[in-house]
């Protein structure tokens, strides 16, 4: 346990007016940052300073600030969600940094995630992949069979849950040297492939989701494993392998 102290930092932050403009890294200095602050609170503090100086504050995505909504992003000092593991940027705290540090803050970089402004990127490609097949085609009447009618082995249910824990933040794409979305898509495909309710449509699902993934312009998987390490929810590479299997099965049908 270390008591909170105040540090002074230099920030190099990507500024870009809109999707069409050319951006560049701007340098800012920020003093008296409490090490008990979260990284985003530090950015709040910088924005407050910018507003008070009548400068335009930095746009960045964030919402729940408790690591579950998946809205926050940021490539901090060369790592998705910054220099800590198993967390999102909103859970990163300034005690991970030292007085006098220079911190690089960049948006996710991917052709499929175009920059909207500053650090904000458009991740709707993920939504479109989900719309292509990330669901069970059951109507919403509630007149389905009883929830306990089909027992599901606990192991399968647990694995499906682990895959479903994905928050869709895009860190996997951001950190992959190829900008591949295989971990995201693999997690979704796996969740449904593991459950009896999802198996019915497994063939069409994996083909459609992969087709959409390719159309969005994500890169290919080189199995470097960086995505698994940077994933704030620890989604396993096993899910990518499972998708590869599912795709092979579907292709041979």
């Amino acid at each position: 346990m270390s008591a909170a102290k105040n540090i002074n930092i230099t920030l190099k932050i990507w500024r870009q007016k809109d999707s069409k403009a050319k951006g560049n890294l701007e340098t800012y200095t920020l003093n008296n940052v409490s090490t008990a602050s979260s990284f985003l609170e530090m950015l709040d503090q910088l924005n407050e300073q910018l507003v008070n100086e009548r400068k335009e504050p930095i746009a960045f995505d964030h919402d729940c600030r408790e690591g579950i909504c998946g809205m926050c992003s940021l490539y901090i000092n060369g790592r998705a969600h910054g220099p800590d593991t198993g967390i999102t940027t909103c859970q990163l705290h300034m005690r991970m940094f030292n007085d006098g540090d220079t911190i690089y803050v960049e948006p996710w970089r991917s052709r499929a995630f175009p920059v909207i402004k500053d650090l904000v990127v458009d991740r709707s490609a993920f939504d479109r992949i989900q719309q292509a097949g990330g669901f069970v085609s059951v109507n919403t009447s509630g007149n389905t069979i009883d929830a306990n009618a089909i027992p599901i082995p606990k192991d399968d249910a647990d694995k499906a849950f682990e895959a479903a824990a994905c928050i869709g933040c895009g860190a996997c794409v951001a950190t992959c040297k190829n900008g591949s979305a295989m971990l995201f898509v693999g997690a979704k495909v796996s969740q449904y492939a593991l459950l009896p309710q999802g198996k019915v449509e497994a063939t069409q699902r994996v083909l459609n989701m992969v087709r959409q993934m390719d159309e969005e312009g994500f890169g290919n998987c080189t199995n470097t494993g960086a995505c698994e390490i940077e994933c704030p929810k620890g989604i396993s590479l096993e899910n990518i392998a499972r998708m590869n299997r599912e795709y092979l099965k579907a292709s041979l049908k």
């Binding site: 990507w14 790592r79 970089r109 991917s110 040297k177 470097t224």
Partner: peptide, 24 residues
Amino acid sequence: IQNKKARPVGYAKTDGSSSSMASR
């Protein structure tokens, strides 16, 4: 080629600690 296209703008700062040199 596809992989290069998937990231038209690179990062100013990268940290390779999450993957092996060979795999990259």
